[in-house]
Design a protein around this nucleic acid. Structure first.
Ligand SMILES: [Mn+2]
Ligand SMILES: [Mn+2]
Ligand SMILES: [Mn+2]
Ligand SMILES: [Mn+2]
Lengths: 219, 219
DNA sequence: TAATAAAATTAGGTAAGCCTAAAAATATTT
DNA sequence: AAATATTTTTAGGCTTACCTAATTTTATTA
């Protein structure tokens, strides 16, 4: 049996592997859980002994296929639950992450499959993140971040690259949501912030940090 | 914060207090969790120190008002989740208990309230057990067990007094479910088993043990 | 490359929730 | 009321998932 803590480690390694494009140092895991480094060293040794990841001392870890399979299954559960909470129970997109963090650890394939069917096999969650299918296949996206966009171009928001409630609520304030049309009027060279129009209404500046979290496609 | 283990203890004490009509000995808890007695002694001391129950050494425990409130809230969650699983996700009544045992520990009032609303404020769960309302009020039932019924009388099944999957599946086989009409033809004096007709079709004998788990009202 | 800084590991410890073995308290039989 | 049986508690241990302090390894800078 796999514990909630172990599942969370695998999920975090999965995420960090993509972000860091390779081996995940133990320190990155410590930071992401807000725990101390030695706790991570212990745990990755255990996960390595279970063949869920490979651990190179003082270098970091990589998921094994077995570990990645579990990680993706949890991401799938997380996103299906988030979709259920927003679509069916009418929570706002900024309210569901913490709940999904709990629900993703409920052990039952059958439950997730039925939820998935009930929801009509959704392809993305309320934040635009792709929902892995039953076989662990994740829809590739050709989205870029708004930060990479060009002044004079128009983009459509299709995802948020962040779990932060604060960011989601900030976007609520700006009346920006999935599907919003963002026109880049200008990029301020001083801080790389962007002056944008949202849905054709003048809006103001988005910091480079925010722009970097917004996944967009050409509109 | 209250842990899953602690919540399970409170729920069990709540159940056993009614069944035993009073103080719950530690041994009864050990038996109900299939764990050893010393583990229970430890835990009830902790719960007593948290004022969730009163503990008299070598006698047993009683819930405090604070403890009972938590216990009832968990029973409410358990039954709402079971209702959701059967009503919305179309699980069978014998499939949902173990899942609800996990889901009942998800911490969120809001989630349960929204589920409750989504389900239309159900009064009973798929096994006929009353769902406590938001204030912890539990609908009193004037049901008796079929065992207490009289030959010649007709009853309607409104609840099952048991969490056993085996019993539920046995009832499935007998085509007995909530709402079934049970006519007691005879009581066998040797073993107190009952010869019954189910929904007007001859059925055969129900053991006293089964009859004792069936909650019925006059039909 | 030697010195220094940063990151990771080792060593030893804690709380939660379980365990076994032994002792004590309570209940039942004779 | 003794003797015996049953139930409960005490004492000491184990595992999981964390911790701090000290040490070692790796990376950076002089
Ligand atoms: Mn999320
Ligand atoms: Mn999401
Ligand atoms: Mn149940
Ligand atoms: Mn039930």
């Amino acid at each position: 049996m796999i514990s909630t803590a172990e599942e969370n480690y695998l999920k975090a390694v999965f995420k960090l592997e993509t972000e860091l494009q390779g081996t995940v140092p133990t320190g990155a895991l410590a930071q992401s859980f807000n725990i101390q480094a030695p706790s991570v060293t212990d745990m990755v040794k255990k996960l390595a002994s279970k063949k869920l990841l490979r651990y190179e001392k003082s270098k970091g870890v990589r998921l094994t296929d077995k570990g990645r399979k579990i990680a993706v299954a949890i991401v799938r559960k997380h996103r299906i639950w988030e979709t259920f909470l927003v679509q069916t129970l009418e929570f706002r997109w900024d309210e569901v992450h913490a709940l999904a963090e709990q629900l993703e650890h409920v052990h039952s394939e059958e439950l997730i499959d039925r939820l998935d069917t009930f929801l009509g096999h959704p392809k993305i969650d309320p934040h635009g993140d792709p929902i892995p299918d039953k076989n662990g296949k994740i829809q590739a996206t050709r989205a870029i971040t708004l930060k990479m966009g060009e002044p004079g171009n128009t983009y459509k928001l299709i995802g948020i690259r962040e779990d932060s409630i604060e960011l989601l609520q900030f976007l609520n304030k700006l009346k920006i949501g999935l599907g919003s049309v963002l026109f880049i009027e200008d990029r301020e060279s001083f801080d790389q912030s962007l002056r944008v129009k949202v849905d054709n209404k003048a809006q103001g500046f988005l910091s480079a940090i925010v722009a970097n979290a917004l996944l967009v496609v050409d509109a």
